[in-house]
């Protein structure tokens, strides 16, 4: 069982974000970074799968500048066997450009399963996984909240609005991982030491010309909340009145 997990390095979403001088993007200088949440779940799912099978290899792939090696190292310290850094000078906003580069790397890797996050926490797009699957011509299931693999076949649960579906598919396949499936383990000290000796291959890649580019990025106005109308059940009549007359939602 050979599994690839594509991980993106993103800023800590608890940060207070600022906009760059040109008004186009988020200023990422000085922020803390980590692998994107759902990507961490995907790494955990992959590790658990190979641990359960008692065989197999998990490989992580990340595209971006040298700084993404930090996220790759973290995955190595969680237990991943090796890492591939697709080196570019920036991470494009255009998800198709990312997918094209990832697909070119993954095509000849002989992977049984290729995993992605449902979406990256910064882009919030949810497109790179499915696009990569298409480019590779592989079966694809997105937003998976349960996953089992046995005998060359996979079974996945996917949440829908008001319900879910259970899908079956042959391997090799591409899945994107949703909430509820696993929480990433913390790297152990031993894992961190071991990671230093694990292979991390860095190779330059050429991106196709972007056709989706930011022209402006804004911070939405802060909510004007903070009004406590009272304490306990005594405040209920006031709340009803405000919902009727002021908010007009009742």
């Amino acid at each position: 069982m050979k599994i690839a997990v594509c991980i993106k390095r993103v800023p800590d979403m608890e940060s207070r974000f600022r906009i760059t001088g040109d008004g186009k993007s988020v200023d990422e200088a000085g922020l803390k970074f980590d692998m994107s949440d759902f990507d961490g779940y995907a790494v955990e799912v992959a590790l658990q799968m190979t641990e359960k099978l008692g065989q197999g290899e998990v490989v992580v792939v990340s595209l971006g500048p040298d700084a993404v090696q930090e996220a790759l190292r973290k995955a190595l310290s969680m237990g991943v066997a090796r890492a591939i850094h697709l080196k570019t000078d920036r991470v494009p906003v255009d998800g198709f450009a990312i997918a094209t580069a990832l697909a070119a790397e993954l095509r000849s890797g002989g992977y049984d399963l290729i995993m992605f996050g449902k979406h990256a926490m910064d882009s919030m797009n949810g497109v790179v996984g499915a696009m990569t699957a298409e480019l590779l011509g592989l079966p694809n299931v997105n937003s998976v909240s349960k996953l089992e693999v046995a005998g060359g076949k996979g079974t996945a649960r996917r949440e829908l609005e008001g319900g879910a579906e259970i899908l079956e598919f042959p391997l090799p396949a591409v899945v994107t991982i949703d909430e509820g499936i696993a929480r990433p383990r913390y790297p152990s000290l031993k894992g961190i030491m071991a990671a230093k000796k694990k292979p991390l291959e860095s190779k330059p890649v050429q991106l196709i010309a972007p056709r989706l580019e930011p022209t402006r990025t804004e911070l939405p106005p802060e909510r004007q909340g903070g009004r406590i109308i009272g304490e306990g059940v005594a405040a209920v009549p006031d709340l009803i009145r405000l919902l009727q007359t002021e908010a007009k939602v009742l």
């Binding site: 800023p11 974000f17 882009s123 919030m124 989706l212 022209t215 990025t217 804004e218 911070l219």
Partner: peptide, 20 residues
Amino acid sequence: IEVKHAGYASKVIHTLMLTA
């Protein structure tokens, strides 16, 4: 086509230009 899209855990709103 210019689109509005929420990013960074919905903390920012991007305006993006799609030229494809």
